[in-house]
Design a protein around this nucleic acid. Structure first.
Length: 419
RNA sequence: GUGGGCGUAGCUCAAUGGUAGAGCACCGGACUGUGGCUCCGGUGGUUGUGGGUUCGAAUCCCAUCGCCCACCCCA
């Protein structure tokens, strides 16, 4: 095999496209219902956009980005996540207009590139469906984004989604909390794993995220961020819960949800599903009230979610969700012998011009082979043209479901098929 | 990046050192101009690749590539 697809990437085969379409169309439909508008941004951006928004010290930026230089010496990076490019466009294209209080609601479907080691549910190119709501601090918007996500999961046929929520506070309470966290861990730091010892200096919040039993045990003694939130953040988190409660949305509060992107403030949440293996997160997001300003725009709060489409597809498969069978459609032109070929070929063109899906057998095989093919390919009708039909100026129309056949005069063929 | 498992026909898998097979799919026939059911027959493999051990390797050893799973991280 001379060429292979790059590691961690996938070809979406014709047989798989239907479920992709079903999921993508459902997402677009749900977004339209919640009044989010589609935004398409480039597949690559200035490297600096991701570095400064996601955070220099995150795994995504420090080891997973596909970064390259163009001929002008600019450093560019393949889309490593969805929020930063959306925020960039929000600012650059002035999507908010003059009304700086206006809520701008955007959605996207996009490939995302990260160079991890592939495994179940993890790819180097995956696809995310996401929404971003920019311009409101209202906790009802946090809940709306969560509600939209859950509606999407339900409408693609996924039951059993678990919602985990947390608040990571604002820069003020977060800084104060980080100090307390470090203090509580400090005297046992030498017992922790090398990663955590590094995190202690570079990104202490991530200490809470470590999966090692020893580290978990040590951090379990640490204060919860939820106890350290400032009044504003605590109130916002309470209000998010009140809004979720009002919608009857079940959730678990999990103070260990930190998320791997540095721009999050206040609300952070994650959707998981038990049908998946180790990579059980099927979506995640949160609030990022400082990001727009940090990227050079006017101070603007925001909240959003990213949903992994491959994982959604995996869950659907595990749950046995099936897409509707495609109905039989189209007309297959069966020609018998040389004299019927060109008339059949003309009919094929005529059918297509009239809007029918239509096909023919370029192998000139037996009628048996042609009908078998038409059956396998899901045609609704076969039109048989042989010596008899040509002589009589008719065509034989066979209904591929019932097997009924009728002789139809050539001039009336199209109207007969339409009826 | 670290560790483990697995690579045999288009697909799912047999064959444990001695002639590479089955089911499904595909093609043809029974049915000379009629698909689906049944029966019969057929096409299809440099056993991922390279090297080694052996009289003999799909099988054992080494290397390499690929895939899968876990760690890590995330969607």
């Amino acid at each position: 095999m001379r060429y292979r697809r790059p590691k961690g990437t996938h070809d979406v085969l014709p047989s798989e496209v239907r479920s992709w379409r079903a999921v993508e169309d459902t997402f677009a439909r749900v977004c339209a219902r919640y009044r989010y508008q589609e935004l398409r941004t480039p597949i690559f951006e200035d490297t600096d956009l991701f570095v400064r928004s996601v955070g220099e010290d995150t795994d995504i930026v420090s080891k997973e980005m596909y970064t390259f230089e163009d001929k002008g010496g600019r450093s560019l990076t393949l889309r490593a996540e969805g929020t930063a490019p959306t925020v960039r466009a929000f600012i650059e294209d002035n999507l908010q207009g003059q009304d700086r209080e206006r809520l701008v609601k955007l959605y996207y479907l996009t490939p995302v590139f990260r160079q991890d080691r592939p495994q179940a549910g993890r790819f180097r190119q995956h696809h995310q469906a996401g929404v971003e709501a920019l311009g409101s601090l209202d906790p009802g918007v946090d809940a709306e984004v969560i509600d939209l996500s859950l509606t999407f999961y339900r409408e693609v046929g996924i039951e059993g989604v678990r919602l985990l929520i947390n608040s990571v506070g604002c820069p003020n309470c977060m800084t104060a909390y980080v100090e307390k966290l470090k203090a509580s861990v400090a005297d046992r730091l030498d017992e922790m794993c090398p990663d955590c010892q590094r995190r202690y200096e570079t990104n202490p919040l991530r200490l809470l995220d470590c999966k090692r039993e020893r580290c978990r045990e040590i951090t379990s003694a640490a204060p919860s961020i939820l106890d350290e939130l400032c009044d504003q953040c605590a109130e916002h988190f309470a209000q998010v819960q009140a809004h979720l409660d009002a919608l009857g949305i079940a959730y678990e509060i999990n103070p260990r949800i930190v998320r791997g992107l540095d721009y999050y403030t206040k609300t952070a949440f994650e959707f998981t599903h038990d049908a998946l293996g180790a990579q059980d997160s099927i979506g995640g997001g949160g609030r990022y009230d400082g990001l727009v300003e940090q990227c050079g725009g006017p101070p603007t709060p925001g909240v959003g979610v990213g949903i992994g489409l491959e994982r959604v597809l995996l869950v659907r498969e595990a749950l046995g969700v099936s897409d509707e069978d495609e109905e039989r459609a189209g007309v297959f032109v069966v020609t018998l012998g040389d004299e019927a070929w060109l008339p059949g070929y003309q009919l094929l063109h005529e059918l297509r011009q009239a809007g029918f899906a239509a096909g023919i057998d370029y192998r000139h095989r037996s009628i048996r082979a042609q009908l078998r093919y038409a059956d396998n390919e899901g045609y609704a009708h076969a039109v048989i043209l042989g010596g008899d039909e040509i002589a009589k100026g008719v065509a034989t129309v066979r209904d591929m479901t019932s097997g009924e056949q009728t002789e139809v005069p050539r001039p009336k063929l199209l109207s007969h098929l339409e009826g």
